[in-house]
Amino acid sequence: MDMTRSKSVRRDARENVAKLHAAALDIFLAKGLDAPLEEIARAAGVSIGTLYYRFGSREGLIDAVIPEIAGSRLQTLASTVMAKDTPSQRLGAFVHGMIELQRDDPALNDAILRRYPDAVALLGICDRSAELGQTLVREAHADGSLSPDFTEHDLFCLLWLAGTASRDPNAPTGWHRVITRALDSAWVAVT
């Protein structure tokens, strides 16, 4: 193979990866991580075979595209949460911020719900967010603002319910209010 052809193939391969990356980002953010890979390949102007050759699997594509944006959004939420004055304000901001992200961002919702556990880079980012949630529950327990009956597991059940409901077009319209009430009932009344 001559050098001109070799350089051309490498440039084309880089361009295909960039087109796949951009198409996957747009489509995953709009439709979630289970968006059809054929649609992504078509939007990028490449074959589905090229997508699999370059990324190996759906999870490979997810890990190449989503962790950076998910990490950025979750870090922004973490900064907002940590700027609050009290443990109860921080935990409340975390829960409501996570629910908002889940409702507004189908790809991040899929990540938080761990729908693709083999997308390990993405799971690492979600694990850091889960650790923050656990810390916030422990801090709210320590200052006495959160009922000892409300556990870290309860927090993740609330977020799972919110994430599941936000993706289901047939979910009852009052799901958000029910989750808010569940959290509100977990606070210890100040006397």
Rank of each mutant, 00 (worst) to 15 (best):
A107K: 07
L25W: 05
T86G: 06
Q75Y: 03
G97R: 12
R103C: 03
L183A: 08
P36Q: 10
Y52T: 11
W187F: 05
S79V: 02
G32L: 07
R167W: 00
L161T: 10
I112T: 07
S6C: 06
I112S: 06
D12E: 11
W175R: 13
G45L: 05
I99H: 01
S145N: 12
D105Q: 13
S57M: 02
F28L: 14
L25E: 12
A189D: 07
A70Y: 14
D184T: 15
L101S: 05
D2M: 03
F150V: 06
A30P: 09
P172D: 11
R128D: 12
S47M: 06
L25F: 08
V95H: 12
V9H: 13
E131P: 00
S72Y: 12
S147M: 01
G49C: 02
R114L: 10
A18W: 01
A140F: 00
R90F: 02
S57F: 00
D104M: 09
D26T: 15
A130S: 11
E59Y: 02
D105F: 08
D118T: 10
F55A: 02
R10Q: 14
I48L: 08
R11P: 02
T191Y: 00
A23R: 07
D149S: 09
A165K: 10
L123P: 01
I66W: 06
G32Y: 00
C157G: 04
T151C: 03
H21A: 01
W160T: 15
D118M: 10
N170T: 08
E68P: 05
P169G: 02
L108G: 08
G124H: 10
S8K: 15
I125E: 06
Q75L: 12
F156W: 15
I48V: 11
M82Y: 05
